[in-house]
Design a protein around this nucleic acid. Structure first.
Length: 634
DNA sequence: TCCCAGAAGGTTTTT
DNA sequence: CCTTCTGGGA
């Protein structure tokens, strides 16, 4: 791949690392105006952003020293986009691409400029981050809040505030008033109390991320210097998964960039809106197009799924959006027989056995690995894991509940923690020849941690020797995986000591907050021990840690953004879909997300023992309309 | 300490 | 919808 730092003429620029982009995608890549890109699953939304970044950086459409800001919701999405841009651009270009989560962006603003907030809204510099739940708000509203002045209302008025609505509607529901609410309603008075207690009572301020988002917005509203700096810095803004944007995020973006020359590209899929219940806006695309005069540009290709699956997907898509246009599948079908099936079982045990047999058979037939499959459920994966795990184990494959708790951390979260990945990479080095991706991974991390310049070859050579020596020492002191928690913990601690606790915190500030570092260390040690059972050797223990030979079991929500050869959705029944009638559109969107994870095949299972299927009859009707067969399995 | 009735939770992200 | 939690009373 040519990766020059020379500037490319816009006419000569070609997409990097892919054969071609569809017409609309190429138009967005080269666009000089605000765009909202609505594109279905597998349309290559992230790739579009990566290509646009390459185009803007390489042609000088985003001229140095100006930068591109990409905002994602999840850390892995932010990392993924940054990685793709680094693969497609010269270092000097990629260096001007900032990919971060919304929360990291907002927190960064508060950390840099927060002390310039008006006193009423100013957090102490060493504020603490908390994750309050309904229970905390209930506690606040029933006890801590106190009695309002007569001009505001009565105790009964305060008690009448719904706990569920308090955070969403009142605490962070709208932009903060610079001088407090002037004639507050009882709910506004309570919100104001909560803010003042959080910011000013106690030794440290305590803030949640939604609160940090609101503080960042008011900060930029009252502080033209900071706002100006941002506008000057960023020539372009990308927003990923835009269908899940909250009012907090949207208001902040509007305060900073509305009416400026920063060009915004928002990409997402309104048919995959499954976070409305968690404060996402109803229709962020329409709001964005109105406020920012953005042009809506749809994408039509589907690079993920076979023709047959795309055909069925379109039936589901039409239920979510009557005007949906049929996408064009760019992937050949590779399986014989039905691409989608409903399997009916008499008991969950039989279901588990048959599914295990099915997966083993498919792995043989199509030369697939365990990670080409996913078992999806609507909720409470651990309830299903109990029956599925032994059945799959009996068939010779392990199954892993990605949402299971390891200590106090969810497994899937532990595995994407930088510290956890670094520990595994170091341990991999003790058993592999010094070369390859683990070595590169460790060196990259260490270079960042020790603050070594990318072109300082002397320092890098020294670092490489240091790593080599450490790994040799480690392989001597721990020739085998740990057999006790104490040993496991000592390995983890030793690696942390080598990495350097202080340096780690500088690069990853999250580890300096509260007891997060301790939690990750404990969880990593716990998981390492659990992966080392049965007297296995290091390679199997580390494979087990990363789960590379295990079939993942997860909820639909966790599967968002991922893709698999085959998807098995377990439990298409009223019980699992209890919330179906609350918000049919959102539930159907969840169904759509599950279905569209598959490249080649989707299997739905039903088991009468778990519940009826009358409330979700419309989902079955959609499958029937698409011609999906239903089979009773003995 | 136990029991029962009624309420709450479930689907989630984030340093 | 079904399961789990909570609080009041015995």
């Amino acid at each position: 791949m040519a990766m020059s730092s020379r500037r490319v003429h816009p006419e000569d620029w070609k997409p990097v690392g892919v054969n071609a982009l569809e017409t609309n995608a190429l138009e967005v890549v080269r666009s000089t105006e605000n765009r909202s890109v609505i594109a279905g699953p597998g349309a290559g939304k992230t790739e579009l952003l990566a290509q646009r970044a390459a185009y803007l950086l390489q042609t000088g459409a985003s001229p140095a020293p100006r930068r591109i800001l990409a905002i994602s919701f999840k850390r892995d999405a932010a990392t993924n986009l940054a990685t793709r841009v680094r693969q497609r651009c010269h270092r000097d270009h990629a260096e001007r691409f900032d990919s971060m989560t919304f929360d990291a962006f907002a927190k960064g603003l508060i950390d840099r400029f927060g002390q310039a907030l008006p006193e009423r809204w100013r957090p102490r510099p060493d504020y603490e981050i908390i994750f309050p739940g309904d229970r905390d708000y209930r506690e606040f509203l029933s006890r801590q809040v106190g009695v309002p002045p007569a001009s505001v209302g009565t105790h009964a008025d305060i008690q009448a505030i719904s706990v569920k609505a308090f955070e969403r509607r009142h605490l962070v529901g709208s932009p903060l008033p610079v001088d407090d609410w002037q004639h507050p309603t009882p709910a506004q008075w309570a919100a104001s109390r909560f803010w003042q207690i959080s910011l000013h009572d106690g030794k440290k301020s305590v803030l949640s991320f939604p609160m940090i988002g609101r503080l960042a917005e008011i900060l930029l509203r009252v502080n033209p210097m900071a706002t100006h700096a941002l506008r000057l810095t960023y020539s372009h803004l990308f927003m990923d998964e835009f269908q899940d944007t909250t009012h907090i995020q949207y208001d902040l973006v509007r305060t900073v960039f509305l009416g400026t020359d920063t060009v915004i590209t928002a990409v997402g899929d309104n048919k995959q809106q499954i976070m409305r219940w968690a404060m996402a806006m109803d229709d962020p695309f329409t709001a964005f197009e109105g406020d920012f005069r953005a042009t809506r540009t749809p994408l039509y290709n589907n690079y993920r799924s076979s023709k047959e699956l795309v055909r069925i997907q379109h039936v589901l898509a039409q239920a979510l959006d009557a005007r949906a246009v049929a996408p064009v599948s760019m992937t050949a079908g590779s399986i014989a027989g039905d691409s989608c099936l409903i399997l009916n079982f008499s008991t969950p045990e039989i279901e588990a056995r048959r599914l295990a047999d099915f997966v083993v058979g498919e792995m043989k037939t199509h030369a697939l690995g365990p990670r080409d499959f996913v078992l999806l459920v609507r909720q409470k994966a651990s309830n299903y894991a109990g029956v599925l795990e032994p059945a799959f184990l009996a068939a010779g494959i392990s199954l892993r509940n990605e949402a299971g708790m390891i200590g106090s951390i969810i497994l899937q979260d532990l595995l994407v923690e930088d510290l956890s990945q670094l520990i595994v990479a170091v341990l991999r080095l003790t058993i592999t020849a010094r070369a390859g991706r683990h070595w590169t991974r460790c060196m990259e991390a260490l270079i960042a941690l020790r603050g070594v310049a990318p072109d300082d070859e002397v320092a890098q050579a020294r670092l490489s020797q240091e790593l080599d020596a450490y790994v040799r020492k480690l392989s001597v002191s721990h020739p085998n995986p740990p057999r006790s928690k104490a040993v496991s913990r000592s390995i983890v601690d030793d690696i942390l000591k080598f990495i350097g606790r202080e340096k780690l915190i500088v690069v990853h500030p999250a580890y300096g907050q509260g007891d997060w570092l301790e939690k990750v260390l404990d969880s990593a040690a716990e998981h390492l021990l659990a992966s080392s059972v049965d007297d296995v050797q290091w390679p199997s223990a580390l494979d087990g840690y990363e789960g590379i030979h295990a079939i993942p079991l997860m909820t639909i929500h966790k599967s968002k953004g991922l893709e698999y050869h085959s998807v098995v959705f377990i439990g298409l029944d009223d019980g699992a879909w209890w919330s179906f009638s609350n918000d049919q559109i959102e539930a159907t969107a969840g169904f759509f997300v599950a279905f569209t994870r598959a490249k080649q095949r989707v299997v739905f299972t039903y088991c009468a023992q778990r519940g009826t299927r009358t409330k979700i009859a419309t989902l079955y009707q959609l499958l029937k309309t698409a011609g999906v067969n239903s089979v009773n399995v003995a």
